[in-house]
């Protein structure tokens, strides 16, 4: 039985017609694999999200928040179209805090009385700097880069920065004149 198989194998290797046929069979196989790869590429490129163009003053663009003096230390101002809060810390530093809860993406409202962000979905609580006071949120609220030019506060909402806790160097301070 075994010898028989061996013989066949040798025959296959020697017979040019058989060799050509097995080459063609293999070729079909590889062509099918290439076609499948192309199909998969096609499907993924159709499914791949396209970057939307952000309009002026909309989320995804640089947003002018206003003059430095408009924001009192210890206050939080909402920018609904930019999807962030501008927090001015007690020491005068600015922080653009994302309104999206880091737990599962609900929008967190600012509670003026308790001076905290409280997520209505699963009860996470954050302080004015966005640090977690109460779980289940795993990390502090994301921030957007703040820049101050000519005493005007600007926030770049295209760049979302993740962080685990608040550090003082995340805040931006107006230059003393």
């Amino acid at each position: 039985m075994k010898a028989n198989k061996m013989e066949k194998k040798i025959d296959k290797a020697v017979d040019p017609l058989e060799r050509r046929r097995s080459f063609l069979t293999r070729l079909w196989f590889w062509l099918a694999a290439v076609a499948l790869a192309e199909l998969i590429y096609l499907i993924t490129s159709f499914l791949h999200p396209r970057k939307p163009q952000a309009g002026r003053g909309e989320f995804g663009a640089v947003i002018e928040a206003g003059a430095v003096d408009r924001f009192k230390p210890g206050s939080v101002t909402a920018f609904p179209r930019g999807q962030f809060y501008l927090s001015r810390l007690d020491d005068g530093g600015f922080l653009a805090v994302s309104r999206t809860c880091t737990h599962l993406g609900c929008s967190v409202p600012w509670e003026e009385k308790e001076k905290q962000f409280a997520c209505p979905c699963h009860g996470s609580i954050f302080d004015i700097s966005g640090s977690v006071i109460n779980t289940p949120a795993p990390r502090a609220l994301d921030i957007f880069p703040v820049s101050i030019e000519n005493n005007i506060v600007k926030v770049d909402t295209a760049v979302r920065m993740k962080r685990s806790v608040f550090h003082k160097k995340q805040a931006v301070y107006p230059q003393k004149i």
Partner: peptide, 27 residues
């Protein structure tokens, strides 16, 4: 309204078991 999450925000009922687990366990 993307700016206002209702309180409470609940998952559809067939996922509320999963939601309950989320309240107790690391995501």
């Amino acid at each position: 309204n993307p700016g206002l999450s209702p309180n409470p925000t609940k998952a559809p009922w067939y996922f509320s078991g999963l939601q309950e687990m989320l309240l107790h366990l690391h995501p």
